[in-house]
């Protein structure tokens, strides 16, 4: 190693030293300890007792784990595309030079500022079957449909019906999509105007411009947001936890892996089992992230490449 190179290495390490300490204390050690705990029977107040792979065997045979896993994946697969469409759409609208832009931006960003407790409780109520606001908006439409088709559709009792509870949660999530909107908006502002002007000269329609200019230019941001949403959605915890009062929701329809981990760790004091569950969640996140990176690499358009 050249002396200069050596000096650079030292310099680099000094600059990133806060991260190295954080990485050792809050990532590497906990990860390894988690792996160890997942092989033990462990409640916080006594020493871990080695069990071997028992926790993983139990987990394999635990239908509630599978249910939580299924809910988690379904939630991610439904909620991420929906919120992506909504937030891209909103970002495009918000990028228009329209009067009161700042106010609109604040309105759409506002929900992501609401503390999880308030958000959950507000929606507990919005989704109330007989008197929730959501059903009061839905009912007139259902009445029209029922009148036209002669059907007997009824507004659902969102949070008490195993078939609708997840839908209710997704609605809640869509409302809180503001952070993604802001990031898309920032991405849109990066797109050079000349591209649009050139496209306009070619006589393309607004929709074509969206498809052929906006989307490709926005694709790195979409990729970034989707990756972040995957990581976030798979860890969904606070809102469903409060929405169900710490429980599982009707027919366990609002039980997610993160909730189940929390219950096992801090309600049942099965830290070992909680660690095994948590590592499964980790593997799931890595797997889905890798899939999206693989897929994204092919699709994402990087300018200047």
């Amino acid at each position: 190693m050249m002396p200069g190179e050596h000096r650079n290495l030292i310099k680099g390490l000094v600059f990133i030293s806060p991260w190295i300490v954080g990485f050792l204390a809050f990532n590497l050690y906990p990860l390894i300890a988690s792996i160890w705990f997942s092989l033990c029977d462990y409640s916080v107040l006594s020493q871990p007792v080695f069990l071997g792979v028992q926790n993983y065997v139990d987990l394999w045979h635990d239908p509630v784990f599978w249910k939580a896993l299924r809910n988690t994946v379904v939630f991610a697969l439904v909620a991420i595309p929906l919120s992506s469409f909504l937030s891209i759409g909103l970002a495009v609208l918000l990028n228009q030079p329209i009067a009161g832009q700042g106010i609109y931006r604040t309105i759409f960003f506002l929900p992501s500022l609401v503390p999880a407790i308030s958000l959950a409780i507000l929606w507990q109520w919005m989704l109330n079957g007989p008197m929730g606001l959501v059903n009061n908006l839905v009912r007139p439409f259902l009445n029209i449909i029922n009148a036209v088709c002669g059907s007997h559709l009824q507004a659902p009792d969102w949070l008490n019906d195993p078939n609708f509870a997840l839908g209710g949660l997704i609605l809640t999530g869509l409302w809180g999509t503001g952070q993604a909107v802001v990031i898309y908006l920032a991405g849109l502002q990066e797109i050079p105007l000349e591209l649009y002007e050139a496209a306009e000269l070619d006589g393309t329609s607004a929709w074509q411009r969206f498809l052929h200019v906006t989307l490709p230019m926005l694709s790195p941001v979409i990729f970034f947001n989707v990756l972040m949403s995957i990581i976030g959605a798979l860890q969904t915890f606070a809102v469903p936890y409060i929405l169900t009062g710490g429980g599982d929701g009707p027919g366990r329809s609002l039980l997610f892996l993160a909730t189940y981990i929390y219950q096992n760790a801090f309600d049942y004091w099965n830290m070992g089992y909680a660690s095994a569950l948590a590592l499964c969640l980790f593997v799931l996140i890595i797997a889905l992230s890798l899939v999206s990176v693989r897929y994204g690499e092919k699709k994402v358009h990087y300018s200047g490449r």
Binding site: N27, P30, L31, F37, L234, L257, A274, S275, A278, L279
Partner: peptide
């Protein structure tokens, strides 16, 4: 995910 590292 935070749950993984929460306990340690």
């Amino acid at each position: 995910p935070f749950p993984v590292v929460m306990v340690p």
